[in-house]
Design a protein around this nucleic acid. Structure first.
Lengths: 203, 203
DNA sequence: CGCTACCAAGCAAGCGCTTGGTTTGTAAAG
DNA sequence: CTTTACAAACCAAGCGCTTGCTTGGTAGCG
C-alpha cells in the first residue's frame, strides 16, 4: 500500500498536465479515434486550444508527436510489467501478473496510447520504427523469461514463442470488445486467458 | 486433391484479371502495405498502369474501392466458412474447420484484403461501416452456432462469446508473425489454437 | 455507330510546416 | 514596489505542395 488511490493525472511519464503533456494526451486520443493520417495538426491544436502552428514549438514534426506517444507508453508499460512480477518467484503467478498488467495497459489507463501503438506503427519513419522495436524487445524479453521459466517447471508444454504470440493476440484484441462498464472484470478475463495457456480445462 | 495448384487468379469474386479485378487486387495490397490514407489514387493507378483520373471510370470514389475490397473478402470468406463446416456434424470437428478456414483467410490466399479489413475499418463512411457490419454479423453467426453446439455437448465450458473473441484475437494476430515459408504449418497452428479452446492441456 | 476504357490537364481544398512578431510568467536588479 | 530582462508559449498569416476528383476529348473494337 505504498501509493494510495489519489494518483495524480500523471499516468504516463511526460503525459502530465503541462502544455506538452496535455498535447500528448489529446494527440493519443485523436490518433486512436481517427488514425494518425486522418488527424490533422489543426485537430490536435483545436483540442488543446492553441493555433496549429504553435504545435511546432513543442515538437519538430507531427510524426514526432506520434513517436513520443509510443515511446512513453512502451517505457511506462515495461516498468509496469517489471513491477508486476517483482517479488513473485512462482512462474505461474508471474504469468498471471504479466497478463493482468498487459490487459491493464490495453483496456485500462493507457488504452488510447496502446491502441495507437498497434494500429499506427507503420506511420513512423523507418528510423523511429527501429527505435520502437528496440524498446519493444525489452518488453517482450520479460514475457519470454517468465514463459521459459514456466516451461522448465513442466507446467507449459507448448512452445514459448507461439504461446506468447497467442497471448498477444488475445490481449490486444480485447481492446476491440472489452467493456469497462460491463460485468466482466479485468481480473476475470486474466484468469480466463491464463486458463487458455496453462489450465486443465476439464474440471 | 480436388483442385490442383493451377488455380486461376480469381481467388475472390470480382477480383479476376479484368481491369476492375486487377485494380481491386492492387488496391488491396497497397492498402495493406501503406494503409488506406497513405495510398494515393496515383499509387493505385501506377500499379495498374493507367492514369489516376481513369480510376474514377471504375469507382466513384477512392473510399468505394476500399469498401468493395472489404465486401468481396467478407462474402468470399463467409462462403469459405460455410463450405468448411458443410457435412460435418461433430461440433468439435466443425470448430477445427472454422479455425482452419479463418487462418487460411488471414494468413493464406486473402491475407492482404483481410488485413485491410481489420486495420482500415474506420476509413469507411459510417454508411459503409453499417453495411460491412451486417455482412460480418452473418460471418460471426456461423461461429456462434458452432460454439453453442459445442457447449451443449459439454466439451466447452467457457462462455461462447468470450471464446469467440479470444479465438478472433489469436487468429487475427497471426497475420503479424506467421511465416508462410517457416516450419509451422497452418494445420499445426489450427490444432494449437483448437487446443487452447477445448484441449485437455495435461497429457 | 456506340460503348467501354482510357488520356491529358488541371482545379479546389486541405495538408504539414514556416515565419515574424506578441503575450505571459518569472525573477533578479534598482 | 517597480523596472528590466529573458525565455517559454503562443498568435496570425500564409507558403508550397499533395490530395481526391473533374472535365473534355480520343483510341479501339464489335
Amino acid at each position: 500500500m505504498v501509493q494510495v488511490s489519489t494518483q495524480p493525472q500523471q499516468i504516463v511519464n511526460g503525459m502530465d498536465d503541462s502544455p506538452r503533456g496535455k498535447l500528448l494526451s489529446a494527440a493519443a486520443r485523436l490518433f486512436r479515434d481517427q488514425g494518425f493520417d486522418r488527424t490533422t495538426v489543426r485537430d490536435i491544436a483545436r483540442e488543446v486550444g492553441i493555433q496549429s502552428g504553435s504545435l511546432f514549438h513543442h515538437f519538430p514534426t507531427k510524426e514526432d508527436i506520434l513517436f513520443t506517444v509510443m515511446v512513453e507508453v512502451i517505457r511506462f508499460n515495461t516498468e509496469r510489467l517489471r513491477a508486476a512480477i517483482a517479488g513473485k518467484s512462482d512462474p505461474a503467478e508471474q504469468l498471471r501478473a504479466l497478463i493482468r498488467a498487459e490487459l491493464q495497459a490495453i483496456i485500462g489507463d493507457t488504452r488510447e496510447a496502446m491502441s495507437v501503438l498497434v494500429y499506427e506503427w507503420r506511420c513512423l519513419t523507418p528510423a523511429h520504427q527501429q527505435e520502437t522495436l528496440a524498446l519493444r524487445a525489452i518488453y517482450e524479453q520479460l514475457w519470454m523469461d517468465a514463459l521459459e521459466a514456466l516451461r522448465s517447471t513442466g507446467r507449459l508444454q507448448a512452445d514459448a514463442f507461439i504461446t506468447r504470440r497467442l497471448i498477444t493476440g488475445m490481449t490486444s484484441w480485447s481492446s476491440n470488445w472489452f467493456d469497462a462498464h460491463g460485468s466482466l472484470t479485468i481480473d476475470q478475463l486474466t484468469d480466463i486467458i491464463l486458463d487458455r495457456v496453462i489450465g486443465e480445462h476439464g474440471a
